[in-house]
Amino acid sequence: MNHGTLIFLGLLLTFLGSWSGMVLAPQVQIGRQQPDVQLQPLNRPPAEGDVGEIYPQARAGLAAQGREIYQREGCYYCHSQQISPHPADARWTQLNRFSVHRDYLFDQPAMFGVQRLGPDLSNIGLRQPDENWHLVHLFAPNAFMDGKAGNKSTMPPYPHLFDYRKIMPQGGSTSALKLPESVILPKQYQDGYEVVPTSEARALVAYLKSLHQDVNLFEAPMYAPKAKTNVVSQTATNGAAK
């Protein structure tokens, strides 16, 4: 091994080897998948005039902007968006279905996440469809923790996504947060102020509400859903996704 050319060629070959295996092969095999009509149940004969849900769908404008905020704030450093086939994941995400390639077709880049210091968010849109809950949680993450027995969130608050606004004599803003009593505002804002989400906060929440991997797919069948989904939450999610 005294010839540079030999080392060069050898390295080129080994490099191309792993590139073909981990980049090219997956791209050729699944990379060109397109959104498809997902008939439910799946293995029934198709017929003319059949319309099922098209999945996945591109996120609506606001939710797509929200994904950029999610990326900017590095949310993916603590929250994953991938449900593994391990049974415990089904319990945490309240949905008995693992994630597959098709779930991420429209996200560039997709927010798979690197750690799970907080819960997985693949299905947060199903688990928590309440917009005000999300906004208050972003503003003051400990608002929903009882604070007893060390129950404290380590999530940082995101006050820069919110504005303090003086309540007008004719009444408060309709979009102001409905804060629970446990949230204490800074002293100078305690009297006559309300907290109003910026468009960024609204976008981020729209994105979170658009997260749902609850469509039964051929490669990822959904077993008896464990989610306590009711009609209201279903419509809320579908509304955000369309």
Binding site: Q29, I30, S84, P85, F98, V100, F218, E219, A220
Partner: peptide, 8 residues
Amino acid sequence: FDPNVYGR
């Protein structure tokens, strides 16, 4: 090596 066979 099937594209539709995932984890489980």
